[in-house]
Computed example of a mutant assay.
Amino acid sequence: MPFLKLRDGAELFYKDWGNADGEIVTFSHGWPLSSDNWENQMVFLANKGYRVIAHDRRGHGRSTQTWDGNNMETFVDDLEELFKHLQVKDAVMVGHSHGGGEVTHYLGKHGTGRVKKAVLVCAVPPLMVKTASNPDGLDRSVFDGFREAMHKDRAQFFLDIPRGPFFGFNRENAQVSEGQICSWWRQGMATSFKSAFDCIRDFSETDFTEDLKRIDVPVRVLHGDDDQVVPIKISGLKSVKLLQKGTLKVYKGGSHAIHNINVDEVNNDLLEFIRG
């Protein structure tokens, strides 16, 4: 399995699939998952002739479980190291949830020299938590509840999330997939407790407003209007207004995991945007 040794000695696991000479599409996963969460999109695009790259964020999946550095500044610097190593250029970056924050801050900090387009899928920007300047955000007690649940019984909490709001399986008449639930739990439990715990603050309290304003390439925002984890009102609808070249597609009835549930629709939307 391919690993990149980073500047501090940590090893970053990554997948590099498809046509080695094809256009590049990169994927950043959400909390507390791994690159495995993008497998449907990666296989689809690889079969279309693209080179698809995804990594397990440090502390997640198969990457080194570092004690420190579980924050957005470190994550995007790791990603820049990976892009240099793999000679990424003219890429399309795709990020889901916390990974959408990673894409946004990467572009805000490291610029768009390697990237021609980006896609934010049910992503956390611009800011999730409620503050004086962000009164529509979620109360801090929501995220305190996450931390309390992790301390009490992480394994059960990591079953409750996919059985409920993540995939929208708590909605009436939802077609529940035990496979999706098990896959989410497996990925989540492979992430270190410390990383998963620290990242609750990272995805909820990081303000991506200025990053969004700096991005000068086209960005497609995909968001479900029934996202119970990152409500569209505080995220997608705001992000598209801050982006210089942002466009929005709303998935009617879509959950937080549209790329896992509305697989064909998301795949085709990605392909259309990449080709366009």
Rank of each mutant, 00 (worst) to 15 (best):
S63D: 01
I161P: 01
W17D: 13
L138Y: 05
S255P: 10
R201W: 09
Q187I: 08
T104Q: 09
V263Q: 09
P231W: 03
K48I: 05
I232M: 14
Q180I: 02
I200V: 15
F83I: 02
S35Q: 08
G49L: 07
K194G: 10
S35V: 01
L270W: 12
L271R: 14
G99W: 09
H85I: 01
E210S: 07
T209Q: 12
H96C: 05
L127G: 02
M72P: 00
D269V: 06
P32W: 04
L82P: 00
S28K: 02
C182T: 14
F13W: 11
V103S: 08
F3D: 05
N260C: 09
E265Q: 15
D90G: 02
V176K: 13
G236P: 06
Y251Q: 03
D160A: 08
W185V: 13
L107N: 08
D264E: 15
F146A: 00
P162G: 04
V142D: 06
V129E: 14
H55C: 05
S239M: 11
P125L: 06
L271Q: 12
K130Y: 12
L120E: 12
N71E: 15
G168F: 09
D211R: 02
H259V: 00
Q87M: 06
H110A: 04
N268A: 11
G61F: 00
G137K: 14
A46C: 09
F13K: 09
A20G: 03
T209R: 11
D136I: 05
M128Q: 14
L243I: 12
T64V: 10
M150N: 01
F3V: 03
S255V: 06
N267H: 11
L159A: 03
D226A: 13
G253H: 12
G224Y: 09
D36S: 08
D153W: 07
L127H: 11
F203A: 01
T131Y: 14
G95I: 07
K252M: 03
S28N: 12
F3I: 01
E265D: 14
M93S: 10
V250S: 03
S177E: 01
Y14E: 03
A190D: 14
Q41C: 05
S141G: 01
